[in-house]
Design a binder for these strands. Sequence first.
DNA 1: TTGCGTGCAAAGGTTTTGCATGGCA
DNA 2: TGCCATGCAAAACCTTTGCACGCAA
Lengths: 153, 153
Amino acid sequence: MRGEYNTRQKRELLAFLRERSMQHFSVDDVVFEMQDRGEKIGRSTVYRYLELLAEQGSVRKYQSVQGITQYQHVEDDSRCDSHFHMMCSRCGNLMHVDCDLMRTMSEHLVKDHGFLLDPRETILVGVCQKCRMAGGEAVEHGADCHEGCHHSV
Amino acid sequence: MRGEYNTRQKRELLAFLRERSMQHFSVDDVVFEMQDRGEKIGRSTVYRYLELLAEQGSVRKYQSVQGITQYQHVEDDSRCDSHFHMMCSRCGNLMHVDCDLMRTMSEHLVKDHGFLLDPRETILVGVCQKCRMAGGEAVEHGADCHEGCHHSV
DNA sequence: TTGCGTGCAAAGGTTTTGCATGGCA
DNA sequence: TGCCATGCAAAACCTTTGCACGCAA
């Protein structure tokens, strides 16, 4: 059975994941950053172990806008009903949103649109506060949306 | 300048896109289905033309959960402020959502979370009504969410 | 005739797989 | 010792790019 043995690679990878809970990363990030701290781990091992953890639910796996697979370790996976994720298309950061409006939206979608939203699979894409500040007024990705939305950014 | 000539490939591809507006497809879908109807077109041409159309806004491009790039032709791209997309993780269908609650959510996100949502990049993932009916009570992808949300599915 | 568009093939990048070796229990 | 885990290399995929030829204007 898979995931049976307690190996050095697993221990180190798991420690790595825990340190950066709530942060997103690619397989390359893992390989190189672990390498930097002197922990040798094969690329295939990273792929295989992350895949296993994703099946078990302690790691979330999704596609970035660029088409690269990103992973994220989650401590508590139980509150899926109000827990969404936002990703900044500029800096790539993944953020959590845990608020009532999301629940309201879910309920609205299922009631009025017949659509059962899955917060685990859904990622809200946009530009985060930090990047908006850094980029000044001209908000790249949301530029044309900006006008129509009447937001006072 | 790109997109200047009116070639057979462009005409046929554009016709293909218009026929399946509101539907999603991959580059392979295009190549093989056009091939089936006797329209020869090179893979690179499809990539290049879809890329061009995506820049111009008449085609939307995004990553599927499986990591394959999907495209979708959109007739009217002007109402981006309240226009979102939902994708069914079962049947793969892409649907449009054009309602006030989405606008409310956008405004909430930017006001209270500092996040400027981009409706063009964001895809709400879940299970559509048709698939929920077909699948009975046990809703595959939203199963554990189902409980927490107190939805009366 | 000019130069953009096309398609093949090759290259590039990411992920998966086969297989021999290593290491946990 | 038995068997899972690992890592290398190769393969499998998807996408992009270079280049010569075709074709629209």
